[in-house]
Amino acid sequence: MLNVNIKSKAFSSSEGEYLAVLKDLSFECADRSFTCIVGPSGCGKTTTLRCILGLDSDFTGSITVAGETGSQKVSAVFQEPRLLPWRTVEQNVRLALKEVEESSLDALFEVLGLSAHRAFYPTELSLGLARRASLARAFAVEPSVLILDEPFVSLDEDTAIRLRKLLLKVWSDRSCTALMVTHNLTEAIALADRILFFSGDPARVGGDYLINVPRSERDEETITSIRRDIKNTVNSPAASGDR
């Protein structure tokens, strides 16, 4: 379970100005849930993720991760794949691991369709493949919480759809709590059990929407109707915006 409770988070500019980004932001992600955070650009979504990942500890409040399995509690898929270009795909994944179980790694590469690319350098991969490798690394460490920061932006729609399916498959095979930031509402509806809408300045959770339809039944029509429902029930600018 992931429990986020950020009382305030601010940046100070180089001129000494003080800019509050998040205020009284609190939410909880249940075990094995898939939560999406949707909100306008620059509203503090990525900042929230950075706080959870421990990359930014300059905030007041608390973040707790209660994990049951896995050697590592939190892992991440960044917006850019962030693979070390001087290491092969397999080395990139292995570097993140402390002890390696051969069989599980083979299976992971197989599921993600990377078996043939293990010995490739990231510079030789398309963006879609690099993103898959980044997913492989994040799942390989068997995290109890997985953080995803817009992992599918700047991909063509077909590739994005394929990758979303892969993500769901790998995620549902493993028991981890996923928290993903996106500004694509359709993507959020297709993936999540629950969508949090960030709004305001400084940002807080402006809306909370639970999706009860099983993922397998979320076809285009259902997504459109969920989208309409969100528009009517969630009072947040992020909910009405397209994308």
Partner: peptide, 27 residues
């Protein structure tokens, strides 16, 4: 800094960070 953050999230040891993240960038 992106690689440094990645190394931190995936808990690279100091030695791993030096050898696989820092030194190759300094090559």
């Amino acid at each position: 800094p992106q690689f440094g953050e990645m190394a931190k999230v995936f808990r690279f040891s100091r030695w791993q960070t030096l050898r696989h993240v820092v030194v190759p960038q300094l090559q």
